[in-house]
């Protein structure tokens, strides 16, 4: 598996750490309520198909990357820096 780091270019999967769905970028306000926080921390869309998830270029530049990816075919459709994807 190969992933293109926006900084470093295409690299082997071994350089990356996987965290989970990119929903982790959408942190609710502290008072958003139980449901919002349950949705953020625990519940997942878990799609069989295109998903956006978070990878960390641990063995490289240290960038957190949002990877748009197909969970059925493992095709990588898009990668972008988490710091830019959010805004």
């Amino acid at each position: 598996m190969r992933i293109t780091c926006p900084h470093c270019g295409e690299r082997d999967r071994r350089e990356f750490y996987y965290r989970g769905a990119a929903v982790d970028l959408e942190r609710p306000a502290p008072d958003a309520g139980e449901e919002a926080w349950d949705n953020f921390v625990y519940l997942r869309d878990n799609p069989a198909g295109v998903t956006r998830d978070l990878w960390y270029h641990e063995g490289g530049c240290g960038a957190w990357i949002v990877v748009t990816r197909d969970t059925v075919t493992h095709e990588v459709l898009k990668t972008e820096l988490a710091s830019e994807a959010k805004s």
Binding site: M1, R13, Y18, N46, T51, W55, T71, V72
Partner: peptide, 10 residues
């Protein structure tokens, strides 16, 4: 370690 429905790994 990555989310997948492929039933195959790397």
């Amino acid at each position: 370690f990555y989310a997948s429905y492929a039933a195959r790994g790397n």
